[in-house]
C-alpha cells in the first residue's frame, strides 16, 4: 500500500482462506484498509473479488483466518449486525416498494420520528440526484437510477464500510470512459491494451503540464489528463483506438507523427499495426477498421500516424 498516513485501520485481513468444497476461492488474503480510504479490487472474473466483498459483508463465512472491522473480529457477527452496507451488482432493489421505501428500508428500528426519517430519505435521494423520485415504483427506474437508489439505501445508514460490487457496470460507455480514466500505469495496463511512451515532464504550470514524449514530441496536457503522482517513471499512455493511420493525402486533424510498420496482425474486421514512432525504438499498437478500398499495409511500410493530444494520459 502506498498509504502511509496515520488514519486508523478500518478493515484488516489476516490470512483469510475460503473454500467452496474443494475449490480454494480465497488463498491467504492479508492486508489493511484504512478509514476514509477508497480501495478497489481488480482482477479477472472468477478471481474472488465478489467472494471477498461477501465475506466482509458477512454473507459468506471464511474457512480460516480473521477479518476485523474497526478493531472487532467479525467471525461471530452476522451480516445484519455488521457496520457494512453493500451495493449489490444486481442492486437488489425491492421491486414491491417505492423508491423512498427502498431507501428507508434500513430505518425501521431507527429511534427517530417518522418526519425525521422522511427527511433523511429525502436528503439521501437528493445526494444521489434522485430528488422527487421518492414516490416512483422501484421497477420503473433505469439501471443507473436503480444503482443510485441502492447507493442511497446504503449511505443513509452511515456505514463504516460501504461495499460496491461491480459499481461501474451500470454506467453507459461514454460516462464510464469519462469516469474511468485510470490513475496509474498499473491500472491502465489492467483495463486494457494501452501504449506507453516514455516521457519527460518539462514544466508544470497550474492546470497545464508540458511533456516531451519520445517519438511524439512536445505536448501540452491539461492537468485532468495527468492523475496524481504515483511515484512511477513518467510515461504517456494512448489507447490503440485513438491512433489512426493516414492514407495518401489524408491530413491529421490535430497532430501527426511519422512511423514504420513493424508488425501487422490481421483480425478480419480489424487490423492491428505495431508501429515504430518517428525513427525511435518506441513502438505503439494501433487498430484500423478494414473497409473496402483501404489496403492492409505490409511490414516496413512508412506511414503517418494521426493522434490527438487530448487522448493522452500522463502517468508519473
Amino acid at each position: 500500500m502506498t498509504f502511509s498516513d496515520d488514519r486508523p485501520t478500518m478493515i484488516e485481513f489476516k490470512d483469510v482462506h475460503k473454500y467452496y468444497g474443494d475449490y480454494h476461492a480465497l488463498r491467504g488474503i492479508n492486508g489493511t484498509i484504512k478509514a476514509g480510504e477508497f480501495f478497489s479490487l481488480l482482477g479477472p472474473s472468477g478471481c474472488g473479488k465478489t467472494t471477498l466483498l461477501r465475506t466482509i459483508a458477512g454473507f459468506e463465512g471464511i474457512s480460516s483466518g480473521v477479518i476485523m472491522i474497526d478493531g472487532k473480529d467479525m467471525v461471530s457477527v452476522p451480516a445484519n449486525s455488521r457496520p457494512t452496507n453493500m451495493v449489490f451488482q444486481s442492486y437488489a432493489i425491492f421491486p414491491h416498494m417505492t423508491v423512498e421505501e427502498n431507501v428507508g428500508f434500513g430505518l425501521r428500528k431507527d429511534p427517530r420520528s417518522k418526519d425525521e426519517k422522511a427527511k433523511a430519505v429525502d436528503e439521501a435521494l437528493q445526494m444521489v440526484g434522485l430528488k422527487g423520485f421518492g414516490k416512483r415504483a422501484a421497477h420503473a427506474l433505469s439501471g443507473g437510477q436503480r444503482q443510485r437508489v441502492a447507493l442511497a439505501r446504503g449511505l443513509i445508514l452511515k456505514p463504516k464500510v460501504l461495499l460496491l460490487d461491480e459499481p461501474l457496470s451500470a454506467l453507459d460507455k461514454k460516462m464510464r470512459e469519462h469516469n474511468r480514466r485510470p490513475a496509474t500505469k498499473k491500472v491502465a495496463n489492467f483495463i486494457g491494451t494501452m501504449n506507453f511512451v516514455p516521457a519527460t515532464i518539462l514544466s508544470e504550470d497550474g492546470d497545464k503540464v508540458e511533456v516531451e514524449a519520445k517519438g511524439l514530441g512536445r505536448v501540452m496536457l491539461d492537468i485532468a489528463q495527468a492523475p496524481e503522482k504515483a511515484g512511477e517513471e513518467p510515461v504517456v499512455g494512448l489507447r490503440p483506438e485513438t491512433l489512426t493511420l493516414l492514407y495518401d493525402d489524408q491530413k491529421a486533424s490535430e497532430r501527426e507523427t511519422d512511423g514504420v510498420i513493424d508488425e501487422v496482425i490481421y483480425f478480419g474486421d480489424m487490423t492491428y499495426y505495431d508501429v515504430y514512432l518517428g525513427g525511435t525504438d518506441v513502438e505503439v499498437r494501433l487498430s484500423m477498421r478494414n473497409v473496402p478500398g483501404r489496403p492492409v499495409l505490409d511490414v516496413g511500410t512508412k506511414v503517418r500516424v494521426a493522434w490527438s493530444p487530448s487522448a493522452l494520459v500522463l502517468f508519473r
Binding site: 459483508a57 458477512g58 454473507f59 452476522p78 451480516a79 445484519n80 449486525s81 457494512t84 452496507n85 453493500m86 449489490f88 444486481s90 437488489a92 425491492f94 421491486p95 428500508f105 434500513g106 425501521r108 428500528k109 439505501r153 446504503g154 445508514l157
Partner: peptide
C-alpha cells in the same frame, strides 16, 4: 424471488 434481495434485507440490518 431474487436471493440477493434477502441478502440486501439482512445487509440493511434486518433479521
Amino acid at each position: 424471488v431474487d436471493r440477493s434481495l434477502l441478502e440486501a434485507g439482512q445487509d440493511l440490518g434486518e433479521s
